[in-house]
Nucleic acid binder design. Sequence first.
DNA 1: GTCTTCATGTAAGCCGTTACATGATTAA
DNA 2: TTAATCATGTAACGGCTTACATGAAGAC
Lengths: 176, 176
Amino acid sequence: MIFVRLLNKTRYAILGVLLDGPATGYEIKALMGRSTVYFWRESDSTIYPMLKVLAREGKVLSEIVYVGKKKKEVFSITEMGQIEFQGWFDSPTREETPRNEFLLKLFFATDRIEMVRLFQERLEKVEKIHTEYKKIEERLESITDSPRRTVRLKALRYGLAHLESEIKWLNNEKDK
Amino acid sequence: MIFVRLLNKTRYAILGVLLDGPATGYEIKALMGRSTVYFWRESDSTIYPMLKVLAREGKVLSEIVYVGKKKKEVFSITEMGQIEFQGWFDSPTREETPRNEFLLKLFFATDRIEMVRLFQERLEKVEKIHTEYKKIEERLESITDSPRRTVRLKALRYGLAHLESEIKWLNNEKDK
DNA sequence: GTCTTCATGTAAGCCGTTACATGATTAA
DNA sequence: TTAATCATGTAACGGCTTACATGAAGAC
């Protein structure tokens, strides 16, 4: 019985971040925490072990750097790593298993009152995220030197368009 | 070290289905496969073991029924089961860990060509789902007797509004 | 001095998917 | 008679989260 699954995509998220330059595990974690976290969340403890695995596989290089007495392990992507990243990037995107608890509850709602309560709860959540996105947009707009600026802004606006359409729909329903 | 996690929501999906009446594991599976599957997918093998667990816990009652020589196990929800369901339904909805591979790729795109390819791929997928939804809508509209008809239609149209907004956005971007 | 941030992990254990298994009935 | 559908599961194993651990440097 052989399982060749490799569903774990943490590696691609890490390799993708390293495309922009060498970083420590901590820096990768921090970057994800303020950028990909809304559409791609990694748990705290996934980054470091995966970096070790990637190093063993030759997809990243590890270098120990001392800042004063403080030891850091800085990782950089290798050619092999770039090839693996590109292989993933170019392959068809597999959908995640859908698991939307809000819609599941909506499906089981029995009357308009329950529905409106669900809409209200959802609206509050979505508006919070929208506010966050707007802040990120401002930050991104003020940057002029990054080569990824345009594409990241586009990705962000894709998310914003979504959220705004949802907010409009929910507000409309709520007041009906 | 005590873990009180109970993140597994399969039980609520099952209890929710049983609210509409008794069913076998197979029927629950089939119903989910043609209704919740777009926003809540259960793997093949989750239903039966969970029904056994729920029976042990007294949340459902099991009854063996013979149809000719064929044996079936029909489950119905108990009062305890209804209380558990309601407890979940009324509690705040916890967001799933975001894992959107399409957005992750978009985040790592380097130029407009890559972006447009991703948009195109996404568009094809979303249009397929939209077609499916439209079929379900037709089916639902033709039913007049179900007490859940109105609420299920609303849930569906929430999804449709989403998809249509996304399709519009993607088409717009593609042609820019 | 103490709190926050930097920096890096391990272990336990639930979660979920895939592969594999079995057998009856019914439609073509 | 063969394929599809009904009907019900088990086993293996990778995936992922949460809790727990450690220690230095810098800010206040």
